[in-house]
Amino acid sequence: MTALRGSSRTAQKESRQMLGHFLGLMGKSVFTALVLAFFVIPVLWLVFAPFDAHPGLNVKLPEFTLNNFKVLFDNPTAIASLGNSLILALGSMVVVLVLGSLASYSLSRVKIPGRDLLLYTLLLLSSIITGTAAMVPTFLLMVKLGLIDSQFGVILVLSGGILPTVIFILKDFMDSTPKSYEESARLYGAKPLRILWDVVIPLARPGLATIAVWAVVQVWGNFLVPYILLRSPSKSPAAVVMYTFYTEGGQPNLALISAFSLLFSIPVVAMYFFVNRRYGFRFHGGIKS
């Protein structure tokens, strides 16, 4: 008898536990769904709105049309701006890769006092260069250098902002290539640049690929710097041009903006998949004490 009662009590306890567990699971699922919705809805808009004859700010199944794209392709600034974005992104990528690998290699191999302090300070200050706070001095500097309304000037400023992070990450890759590889090459008479090219860069390739994509994405999406430093619409990148798509009535031209946004985001997503497949993203190492 007692045994039976005891077992029924444990059964009760178990079912209560299960109920709690179930409720907890429900709560968690609902919460996750809400958070997910928060992120998914803009993406859904990005996918649906371009194909909608009357796009609004809400997500709805489109009345299917390709007319938005036709309007977009008829707009000369829009397409040219994508080309400008490409110039800025690839230009910065090249500057960042060349200077970043040279700097990180030297910093990894040459012992100078206060090296780590230098690196951390650079990292800290880098967010300021391309940030809002330094825009006025940056602008004045570029005026003095005669680099206003020059894509080259924009590339320099953007690269300057990205480089410290790049150097920081690449230095870690450089640190982890065994010294004996280089020493061996050195004994056969290879000069430092030759060693960098033949031995260090091939070994740091996954890191360089990651950095390249990251740099492109950073520049591709940057609005502030080109907006301030470029004057002519013919030189402006997509991120800036998009801002100018208004209807005659002064309303944002959602048809044009949505189609353009989709076009604007495709290269970045494509690049992500390409690099991820080829090298896998490896931000390993990162920060060492």
């Binding site: 020493e183 004994l187 056969y188 008479g189 030759r194 070994l203």
Partner: peptide, 30 residues
């Protein structure tokens, strides 16, 4: 590089991204 010495390291220090032929011929490449 000017001493005309060749060293074999304990970990061999073969370049992992090059074929064996390229590894062997690396001094000649330089």
């Amino acid at each position: 590089g000017q001493r005309r010495v060749a060293m074999v390291f304990q970990d061999y220090a073969l370049f992992p991204h090059m074929s064996i032929a390229d590894n062997i011929a690396y001094p000649l490449k330089i």
